[in-house]
Write a protein that binds this DNA or RNA. Structure first.
Lengths: 252, 252
DNA sequence: GGAACAGCCTGACGTCGGGTCAGGGTCAAG
DNA sequence: CTTGACCCTGACCCGACGTCAGGCTGTTCC
C-alpha cells in the first residue's frame, strides 16, 4: 500500500507543504518516487510520520525529533513509553492550570482578589512548568519523585510561601559565605549545605547525603539549575555544588 | 511598585527580548519610561502580561491575543471563563492522546496493528467523518496488512517464548475462572486480572491500575482486541474487561 | 571620583516551521 | 484532447522571538 502526498496529508491532518518540508530536511522521506517524480509513502513512512507528529505536538524541535527517531538504541516501544510519560506530564500541568483558573474564578466570585504576584506564581512559569518537567525527566521513576509528588500535592499556598522563603534564605546564606571568602569545602559552607539537604528532606523527599551529592553535581552540569544559582551570585552554582558534595563526604 | 525589563522577565520566566518584542508590537507596553529611557512596568502591566502569557500558552497568535485583551466588552471574568474552557479542551485532547498512545502500546504487545487512519485519528479529528468512507474503502480488508506489519522487538526468541507462554497462561486462567462460574468481579477473577497487569508491566511497559482499566474498556470496545479473547472462549472479552476494571477499582 | 561591571537601550540580521504564490508537468474522466 | 484535480520545484514571506553589535546608565567598591 502506498500514498501520495495529498492523501497522506489528509490522513494525518497536515498540509502538503509540511510533508515537502519534512522531506527536504530529511525528517520523513518517502520511501519511493514514481517515474514522474511523485512522492510515494509506504506503511513504514506513515509509522515514522506519526512518531514525528507526536513529538512535534509535545514541543520538540524537528531536528531533535530526527535525532531521537534515528537513535538506533531506541526501539518503537521506547518511544511510546517516552511519549506516554511526556503526555502524562502535560496532563498534570494542564490540570494544575485548570485548577488555578478555577481557584481564581472562585476568589473573584467571593470578592477576594489575589495579588498579581500570586497569580504569576500560579500561572507564570518555572516552578510548575520547567522545574517540574525537568525534575521529572531526571527523577521520573524514583521513589524520591513519587514521594515529593505525594507530599507537595497537599501543600497550601501558605506552605509554599514558607518553602520558598526558606529556599531563598538558604541560597543567600550560601552567597554570604562565599563572599566572606570561605572555601566551598570549609565547615561554614558545609553547614549551609547541610541546611539545604534538610530543607529538601523536610519539604520534598527524603534526601540522604549520597543523593544530595548527586543533586550537587547536577547544579553545575545542568545549565538551567546552574542559572538559578548564578542569578543570585556569579560562581555560586559551582560553589554550592562543591559544598554539597563536600558535606556529603563529611557525612558518609 | 515598578519593575525593569530584567526583573519582570525573571518574574515571568521569559526573556528581556520577549518584552522588547511585546513592547514594539504594542502588546504589553510599559506604562512609563525613566528619564534615561528605561522601561518601567507597573502592576497593571504585569497583570496584562500574565493574561498574554496564558493565551500564548494556549496557542493564540499574539495579534489575536491583543485584540482579545483590547476588547472593551470583555471583562477579566470573561477572560477567565474563556481560558477555563480552552484549558479543559486541551485537557480532553491530551487525554485522548494518552489513550491513543496506550492503545498503540497495547496493540504492539498483542501483535495487532492499528490502521493508519486510526493512528492519525486524534490529529485530524474534525474532518475524520468526511474521510471515513474513503478510509473504510481503503482498509476494508486490513488483515493482510496488519499481519505484515507485525512489530519488531528487542526480545530474543527465548524471551518471546516465555512471554507468549505466560500470556497464554493468563488467558486460560481467565477462561477457567469464568467457566467455574465465578463472576467477573469476584476475587478469583480479579486476582487473574492482577496477574495480567503484572504480566504487561513486566514485559512491556509500566501499567498502573488506572491504565489497566483503560485497556479493559478497550477490550470490548475494539473488536480486534475483543476477537483475541473471544477466540479463547466466547464471552471472555467482556469477562476480562469487567475483571480488569474491578481489579483496578480494588487497587485504587 | 573614577573604574568596573551589570543592566538598559536601539537597530539589524538569523532561525524555525512552515504558508503562499509562480511556473510548469501528470493523469484519469469525459 | 481538453478539463480539472493533483504533483513538482523554486522562491519569497511570516510570526515570534534569538543573537549580536555598538553605545548609554547606574551602582558599587576602592
Amino acid at each position: 500500500m502506498s500514498w501520495t502526498v495529498g492523501e497522506l496529508a489528509r490522513l494525518a491532518g497536515i498540509t502538503v507543504r509540511t510533508l515537502h518540508h519534512y522531506d527536504r530536511i530529511g525528517l520523513v522521506r518517502p520511501s519511493a518516487r514514481t517515474s514522474a517524480g511523485y512522492r510515494s509513502y509506504d506503511g513504514r513512512d506513515l509509522d515514522r510520520l506519526q512518531q514525528v507528529l507526536v513529538y512535534r505536538e509535545l514541543g520538540f524541535p524537528l531536528e531533535e525529533v530526527g535525532t531521537l527517531l534515528d537513535d538506533p538504541d531506541a526501539d518503537p516501544a521506547a518511544h511510546l513509553r517516552r511519549q506516554h510519560r511526556l503526555l502524562r506530564d502535560r496532563l498534570e500541568r494542564t490540570q494544575a492550570m485548570v485548577a488555578a483558573v478555577e481557584k481564581e474564578m472562585e476568589a473573584r466570585t467571593m470578592g477576594i482578589s489575589l495579588t498579581p504576584e500570586e497569580r504569576f506564581e500560579l500561572f507564570g512559569n518555572g516552578f510548575s512548568d520547567e522545574y517540574q518537567a525537568e525534575a521529572e525527566e531526571r527523577w521520573g521513576d524514583t521513589d524520591a519523585w513519587a514521594q515529593s509528588q505525594r507530599r507537595t500535592s497537599a501543600y497550601t499556598k501558605e506552605d509554599w510561601v514558607r518553602v520558598k522563603t526558606e529556599a531563598h534564605d538558604v541560597q543567600h546564606r550560601f552567597a554570604e559565605v562565599m563572599r566572606s571568602g570561605a572555601t566551598a569545602d570549609s565547615a561554614a559552607a558545609m553547614d549551609v549545605a547541610e541546611e539545604h539537604r534538610q530543607h529538601i528532606s523536610r519539604w520534598f523527599y527524603d534526601c540522604p547525603p549520597e543523593m544530595h551529592a548527586g543533586l550537587g553535581r547536577m547544579y553545575v552540569e545542568d545549565e538551567r539549575f546552574a542559572a538559578t544559582y548564578e542569578q543570585v551570585a556569579p560562581g555560586l552554582a559551582q560553589y554550592v555544588s562543591t559544598a554539597v558534595q563536600a558535606n556529603a563526604g563529611r557525612q558518609g
